[in-house]
Amino acid sequence: MHLLVQAVILGILIGGVYALMASGLTLVFGIMRVINVAQGAMVILGAYLSYTLFSSVGIDPLLSILLIAPVMFALGVGIHRVFIRALRAESGEEMSLLVTWATALAIEGVLSVTYTTNLRSTIPGYAQRSWIILGYRVAEVRVFGFVISVVILSALSLLLARTRFGRSVRATVQNPTSAKLLGVDADRVSALGFGIGISTAAAAGAVFGIIYPFNPGSHYDLISRLLSIVVLGGLGSLGGAVVAALLLGVGESVVAVMISPSWSSFVFFIVLIVILVFRPQGLFGVRERGAL
């Protein structure tokens, strides 16, 4: 029982970080019907950037998010300008999968050339420390990571709920044609949305790099999890992604502790299959278009 509770605590903490990674994925899908297969690679890129800032300049990896996120935002807008926008005309959604996959490969390639394929981890002073709460051991860094994820996710949902930009995003998600008719600049919304999606990945990457060791190939592992999360939550649904991330984070962690870590990723796959058989639109999805 003690083990189980411990596993659930760890699962919720990591689930929060997954939620941050998945939020960008589902947001981008909602706005422009693009599944960004490079989201995992963006997380790993974020992890490497924060690793470099920490090991060469000594900037705290969690604080480095403030530097990395804007840079990655710009990168996202750039990728949208060059690759994604070019696609929108005729070939449609499926091509975007291939383009983002190619982007993931390119990032993996660049990281492999720059950093080699050895496993790295970012190890700040508090990486090994943990608190004992009611007899349960809770690693400090996981709590920090969770808190940061919650803060960024809250900021994101405030942005979507309260600002003019957020309204145009929601309008585009609900009905792109009407949104355009009402004067929403679809191109601008897409570009900014893509940038935001990527910078959440990078922020999550800085946290990821402290919790787990990573190498340039780690993105495959991540993207398979993230895709399961967004399908479970319902493509395009931000709240759904958060709930799904927490559920799957807990499921993964419980299986890792109770059965074996090498089977833990199967939680994602099994849930995905069950969902597809019984509820193909996901937990919170709408059959046609996602709603935030």
Binding site: L87, A106, G109, S112
Partner: peptide, 16 residues
């Protein structure tokens, strides 16, 4: 690993 980058570039060029 330049191979990977070159491959991705070919890939992107074809699709675009």
């Amino acid at each position: 690993e330049l191979y990977l980058i070159a491959y991705a570039a070919v890939f992107l060029a074809i699709i675009l």
